[in-house]
Amino acid sequence: MKLAVLDLVPVVEGGTIGAALDNAAQLARTAEAAGYHRFWVAEHHGMAGIASAATAVTLAHIGHATSTIRIGAGGIMLPNHNPLVIAEQFGTLDALFPGRIDLGLGRAPGADQRIVNALRKDVNRAAEHFPQDVVELRAHFTGEPKMPLQATPGLGADIEMWMLGSSLFGAQLAAMLGLPYAFASHFAPDHLDAALKRYRDEFKPSATLAKPHAMAAINVFVAETDEQAVYEASSMDQAFVALRTGNPGRLKPPVDGYRESLPVQQRAMLEHMRQASAVGSVDTARRQIAAFAERTQADELIFAGSTFDPAHRRRSLELAMEAAAGL
């Protein structure tokens, strides 16, 4: 099984955007050395705690810091953009880092209504045209069908396109277009099993993919002990609660006993959101990762999970690779 990394490029309390980008590059180098297959960052706008809004620029920075690991967007929210512009951006990335570029596509705007207004786009209408825009974007790379305007860079670029999703819609579209599919179970686990089944049942082979290829996301925090892993994971727990209660911000330091301190309703919400997780020592994480892999039968797993101290995330990835050995 191939393993990948999803990094939110977190900005911590007291930190800077520059430090967050530098930490992302260091994390990508750690992932490459540990044997991970992919390193993805995602498009989020107007989020004080996430530094990857300019996703293609962030990937160029990470690409220059690495040499072999695949790098990509997990994902680009296509309704925010013109397909031609994304073709040019990722065509440029392919020219800089040949054969290493992934382009995951999502239908959600990745923002609230304020950002939608700031983008000056009718995102709801654009979301309705998402399937056509995906086909158009692919045509900019493949030249089939021929587009009235050739994307340069873009045409002929060796881009691995993915469909992302947290519902059945993305699964159906990925199956129809013969694209690999990644499910965002690290924060939206409700439709995981149904979406993977729909994708596999309805998959139609394409010129680039002969059979279904699915990736599932899981939050992974591995440390020397179970207690240390739970402690480090509490920064991400705080971020989830802050997001769901309408108060997102920069990533906070870990807190002992954070989950136990929450009101019952918030704790239940957090437990539900974080059900796709592996948190603990190598032995504990091994059992949890293996159970998730067995449940999903995924071809790849992508590990998410930010820590306040970037050194702890780097160490977590090294230990997670040890935990996942033999899957």
Rank of each mutant, 00 (worst) to 15 (best):
L177F: 05
M273E: 12
S235D: 04
E128I: 03
L301C: 08
A324E: 10
T225V: 05
A151M: 08
V5D: 01
Q275K: 14
S206R: 08
I69K: 02
Q266G: 00
T92S: 12
P254Y: 10
G99V: 10
R244Y: 13
M176L: 06
I302P: 02
A320D: 05
Y36F: 15
Q266Y: 00
L3F: 14
A291P: 01
K121C: 02
P145M: 10
G154E: 04
A56Q: 08
T307P: 00
H44P: 06
Q275G: 00
Q275L: 02
S234T: 14
A127W: 03
V264F: 03
A20N: 06
L196T: 07
V264K: 13
L8W: 05
R267H: 04
D122C: 05
K146T: 15
P109Q: 10
G74F: 01
Q297N: 13
S206H: 08
F183M: 04
Q113H: 11
E322V: 11
Y36T: 12
G63D: 06
N80W: 07
V85A: 13
K146W: 03
G246P: 06
L317H: 12
H272K: 14
W40I: 03
T142S: 15
A184W: 02
A19D: 15
A298T: 11
P248I: 01
A229V: 06
A290P: 00
S261A: 15
Q132I: 00
R244H: 14
T92E: 05
G99C: 07
A188P: 00
L21H: 14
P180Q: 06
A31L: 10
P189I: 05
L301M: 15
R107V: 09
A175E: 09
L262P: 07
A285E: 13
L105Y: 07
A56H: 13
S234L: 04
M215S: 14
R198L: 14
E144A: 11
A20I: 05
A31F: 05
T245K: 10
G35P: 07
G72S: 07
G75W: 00
H140W: 04
A304N: 12
G46A: 12
G156L: 07
A229Q: 05
A54V: 07
D133N: 14
P310D: 10
A239W: 05
M176N: 12
G305Y: 01
M321N: 04
G156H: 07
G99I: 09
E260Y: 01
P248K: 02
S277Y: 00
I62Q: 01
L84G: 04
R315T: 14
Q265E: 15
A60G: 15
L59V: 03
D237V: 00
M161G: 01
A20Q: 06
T58I: 07
M176A: 13
A54L: 05
S166E: 02
D112T: 11
V230D: 12
A33R: 12
A175G: 10
T55K: 02
H129Y: 06
E136V: 09
G143E: 09
A53G: 12
V222D: 11
V241S: 08
G170F: 09
A126S: 11
L179D: 10
A4V: 02
